[in-house]
Nucleic acid binder design. Structure first.
Lengths: 327, 327
DNA sequence: CTGTTAGCGCCTTCAC
DNA sequence: GTGAAGGCGCTAACAG
């Protein structure tokens, strides 16, 4: 019958080491210079003996800091999100902070709930790929903790934003194909109205191309065969040289391989491109030119800014662009 | 020049509402039945006016609970991990808990560090896909919080484990191909010795097949062309009907499409199968039979067990198997 | 129905 | 170089 393990606190350590709690506290916080090495040793031994671990909740109350940063993403399943997280974590780690990922699952209510948790003093900062509007964030977070926005451009937002050059790089890619003689574009995308990023990408294409067909695919419920057949129809109904331009890697991976296999995409009459963060897309056809963002770097950038803000430094620029490349 | 926002505390609310802090506390915790609706209303108004949010650190000190559960995964980039997280989150949410994902990045030191954070009283429970050994976990976590292991089988572990039937399903798949007349297997895998899961899968194949070639690929630094050429060589050097069996989806996605494209995999002389959690692999070739785990369900299972433990209920079984399917 | 009070575990002056 | 004591914000008895 295992006794409920008593969790040692600073008092226990003090009494075992025969010193005051103040001394233990000093030891814990590295103020060893103001302490004889003998007492330090005694404290050390006591801590080990009792398997003592400082209670971070109590600590937080005094220091007003937990060394934890929350990253709220729209969908953990996206490679983009997890890479951002890896970037965030790696930088934070080097500064003694720790990053944790929360998933809003593109759900407004859920995002609100998560933000209210972040708002209840457990986190020192928030990095967020927001789904809600600015107003909603301001409502939810009324402590003045540092906030960094990632992957979303918000015009009037009072926080630093780390984003990609969606418009420019899409434009660059579209121009390239125009020059190659591909003058017709089939844009394969999730609902355009739902996200500013997608619209930016579309605008980039639109800025150089005239002949554009848009094929919107519903993220959750879509009929693979129907979309595929539609693509085939679009590809075959015109004599114009055509590019399939996927605004999201997923659609590239789902439809393009088959189109290549069946000969509809031959790089002469038709070709394909799109946004592709993983290396997988480039395996489909090594010669295919694609757009790659750098989510890891974006995350790292967010974390750097966060740490600066935590130190009290003020960030001058309000928008940081981590360029995507077309290659 | 914005004043440093004063953060309201329970005292402020009490004084504005002209009640005691105890009453506010009762209101916060939903003990409304023992309170006149007038005072409740006054408290409500005061809270809104002051934009008051309870300090969770202070709360934790008393209640010894944060309602937060940590999920430590080996690699956030894996679809498997993020799906587990989604399963965990969705169940926890319905019980008023909140899940957060931490990434050990398959690094022993990092995992230790994360566990020590979890150990410092900020989390009510830990779900972990461990990279370290049992001993290491026991060393790091000496509070008696509930721990659930996911995706790793640990013989002597004192915690509940939620796993997949790696051995059985691999065996089932291998038998199927044997019956179809495919008697030679090329196992495409990351280093076998590094993970029990992979070894289990290999054992499953081995239990029915005799002619097995193993091709180990290094996760981080591998030469795509070299591996590919090697596969082609293996496929062509024997007259025996052969299955390429990928123990990890990534390898399936990286090499099989090209092999199909180039005609090496024709489903007559050679075919392919493997573990595939995402739907992407099934797009490569709809007729291909693959093994799918159910990470979402595994996560949900972990969370259910966690919640039960948190309520004080004891879990009878020590190992929960969420079967994968071959189809 | 409502208020008073004693801590939770820790850090931080202020003394000695 | 070390200790005593107050207080961070909240909850949970215990009174009334």
């Amino acid at each position: 019958m295992p006794e409920k393990k008593h969790i040692a606190n600073i008092k226990d350590v003090a009494s075992v080491a025969k010193v005051s709690t103040a001394t233990v506290s000093r030891y814990l916080n590295g103020n060893l210079n103001r302490m004889s090495s003998k007492t330090a040793e005694r404290v050390k031994v006591a801590i080990e003996k009792l398997e003592y671990v400082p209670n971070s909740a109590a600590r937080q109350m005094i220091t007003k800091s937990s060394k934890m940063i929350a990253l709220i993403v729209a969908n953990t399943d996206d490679y983009f999100s997890t890479e951002v997280f890896k970037g965030v974590s790696s930088i934070l780690e080097s500064y003694g902070y720790i990053g944790m990922m929360l998933d809003s699952d593109s759900d407004i209510v859920r995002e609100r709930k998560l933000m209210s948790v972040v708002n209840s003093n457990t986190f020192d900062g928030l990095i967020i790929q927001p789904f809600n509007s600015i107003g909603s964030i301001e409502e939810s977070i009324h402590r003045n903790i540092p906030i960094v926005i990632v992957d979303r451009e918000m015009d009037q937002a009072p926080w630093v934003q780390v984003i990609t050059n969606n418009y420019e790089v899409s434009r660059e890619a579209a121009s390239y194909f125009m020059k190659q003689g591909f003058t017709r574009f089939i844009v394969l995308t999730s609902k355009l109205s739902a996200a500013t990023n997608r619209r930016e990408r579309y605008r980039g294409i639109e800025s150089v191309a005239k002949n554009i067909e848009v094929l919107e695919v519903s993220e959750s419920l879509y009929n693979h065969k129907e979309i595929y057949d539609n693509l085939v129809k679009l590809l075959t109904e015109s004599k114009e040289r055509t590019v399939i331009f996927a605004l999201k890697e997923r659609w590239l991976l789902e439809f393009v391989p088959n189109l290549i296999l069946k000969g509809y995409i031959d790089n002469v009459k038709a070709t394909a491109t799109g946004f592709a963060d993983t290396t997988m897309a480039r395996q489909i056809e090594p010669k295919m030119k694609l757009i790659s963002q750098d989510p890891f770097l974006m995350g790292a950038g967010c974390a750097e800014i966060m740490v600066k803000r935590l130190k009290g430094e003020v960030q001058k620029e309000n928008v940081i662009v981590v360029p995507a490349t077309f290659h």
